[in-house]
Design a protein around this nucleic acid. Structure first.
Length: 484
RNA sequence: GGCGCGUUCGUCUAGUGGCCUAGGACGCCGGCCUCUCACGUCGGUAACACGGGUUCGACUCCCGUACGCGCUACCA
């Protein structure tokens, strides 16, 4: 029957507020979002904050902010609600209890009174025997006296799911293909902790089921959890979603990307001056590729083209070099006004005055050409804000003392005084006539001017730099270079 | 230890049995552009983990080995 109905795609991103939004999780969020938009479905945000030990309220806001910064708008979730709320697991505790009770009533789950020490012992023993699972099902076969005894001792029970014997869990993963697991290798696992809080595997299934999630898209570190969840779906009678396990992102040492590898939280990237669309583009290209072979892809194209057919099965290393290159591409092609606004943030932090809008715009236009992350604009633009010029480079010092350089300065000065307003065009004209007059050309002509004006041998286009400085400042700087 | 997943240039990848003398991108190297750096542009460097099958033919299919990663919690 349901073959005829075109089911609406409903995907979810379910972060746990135990820290900042990790770059790997951001990628998972991006792929979920892309798929939702591609299929015209819904992108649902759910907060998995069942562990009070590790969940921190502030991180929820942080994560929401990060997601918004990326532009990943959600259709249901915190702050906007939806038909399947609440969207915070800590507010759904009664729901999990109800379904756990249902499993107990139907004989699919049972109380477990084992202590951490007892469990640890079992783990050791089964490990020594070379088995996969570890729980020996002691509490499944408890006599009434034993049970009374534990209760009398004040032991609070957890609830374990009873894994079917001798069967095989088979499911089709959209990216990995058919996956099979013997239940013999899965021991009865806890679904409700003794404090009445659900475990991840249980809460995720109950919520995904109730929220009618059609595709579970997550990192492939969850593959091993999936058979447990499949069993739960079956026992609970929920419709099974499709699973798509996307490959991990690795650090330079080929282990899963983590803090050890440097910047891993999204806000660090924002602060350093990466553009959200660059990050989305780059992250999308980790284990996915456009069939056109293009690599610079707009959000629009990403939405149009994304599908699981082209997601690869193997993990991908995070390549900072390529991200930087890509970010540079986006910085240069973005609307200038936008980059100006962002650049001002960095200028202000560096103490540069940003009041003169048209000057700032010119500065950004010429300096964005040379940076890969926005924070680098502070260094490149320093020449426009520095109080006085100090020449550190000895080659540069020697250069301006050259007779030919001094001749150039004098000639340039004379011609500069003849004009009213200096701009990039008449700067070039002046240079031409200075060349004619002095016979100095090429590097010997330009470099002394560059050094006199900026104190450095490298920098933005000189005509533009001179225009930004203006006639008076140039005049003053060249005079100084003459008498040095 | 057990279970699962993976393995094409340094890195991200294309490749679905002949189109592969393995293509593109980042990086790197060199040329051009040029006052410099960067941009841009042109060219170069560099890979099918290994061993068996299957097949007229294997990067592509099957099996094994090696290596890597993940899971193996009353974390998610």
């Amino acid at each position: 029957m349901r073959e005829n109905v075109v089911m609406e795609t409903r995907v979810r991103f379910a972060p746990s507020p135990t820290g900042h939004l990790h770059i790997g999780n951001a990628r998972t969020a991006i792929l979920n979002w892309l798929f939702a938009r591609h299929t015209n479905g819904k992108f649902i945000l759910r907060i998995e904050d069942t562990d009070p030990e590790r969940s921190v309220e502030e991180y929820i806001d942080q994560i929401l902010q990060d997601l918004r910064w990326l532009g990943l708008t959600w259709d249901e979730g915190p702050e906007i609600g939806g038909e399947c709320g609440p969207y915070r697991q800590s507010e759904r505790l009664e729901i999990y209890q109800r379904y756990a009770q249902k499993l107990m009533d139907e004989g699919n789950a049972y109380f477990c009174y084992c202590t951490p020490e007892e469990l640890e012992q079992m783990r050791k023993e089964s490990h020594a025997r070379g088995e996969a699972g570890f729980y020996n099902r002691r509490c499944l076969h408890l006599t009434d006296e034993e049970r009374q005894q534990f209760i009398a001792e004040g032991r609070k029970p957890a609830i374990r799911f009873k894994v079917p014997d001798n069967s095989e869990v088979i499911f089709n993963d959209i990216v990995k293909g058919e996956l099979r697991f013997e239940t013999e290798n899965i021991s009865d696992f806890v679904i409700m902790r003794s404090e009445g809080i659900p475990t991840y595997n249980f809460a995720a299934v109950v919520d995904d089921g109730l929220m009618k999630i059609s595709h579970v898209i997550r990192g492939d570190d969850h593959v091993s959890n999936t058979p447990r969840q499949v069993l739960l779906y079956q026992a609970l009678g929920f419709e099974m979603p499709q699973f798509a396990h996307i490959p991990m992102i690795l650090g330079p040492d080929r282990t899963r990307l983590s803090k050890r590898h440097g910047a891993t939280s999204l806000d660090q990237y924002r602060l350093k001056g990466y553009l959200p669309e660059a990050l989305i583009n780059f992250l999308s290209l980790l284990s996915w590729s456009s069939k056109t072979g293009d690599e610079i892809l707009s959000i629009k194209r990403l939405i149009e083209e994304f599908d699981f057919e082209r997601v690869s099965k193997s993990a991908a290393m995070f390549d900072f070099e390529k991200l930087n290159w890509m970010n540079g591409q986006y910085i240069r092609s973005a609307d200038l006004e936008r980059i100006v606004e962002l650049a001002k943030l960095y200028f202000r932090a560096a103490g540069y005055p940003v009041e003169d809008e048209s000057t700032i715009q010119k500065i950004v236009a010429v300096t964005r050409e040379k940076i890969e992350t926005l924070d680098q604009i502070v260094d490149v633009a320093r020449i426009f804000f520095q109080e006085k010029i100090t020449i550190k480079d000895t080659n540069a010092k020697e250069m301006i003392r050259l007779d030919s350089s001094q001749k150039v300065f004098w000639s340039f000065l004379r011609k500069l005084r003849e004009i009213d307003v200096l701009d990039r065009e008449n700067f070039k004209e002046i240079m031409k006539s200075v060349q004619k007059e002095t016979g100095v050309m090429g590097k010997n002509l330009w470099m002394p001017l560059r050094i006199a004006l900026t104190g450095q041998m490298h920098g933005p286009e000189l005509p533009v730099t001179a225009e930004i400085f203006g006639k008076e400042k140039c005049e003053m700087l060249i005079e100084r270079a003459i008498f040095k």
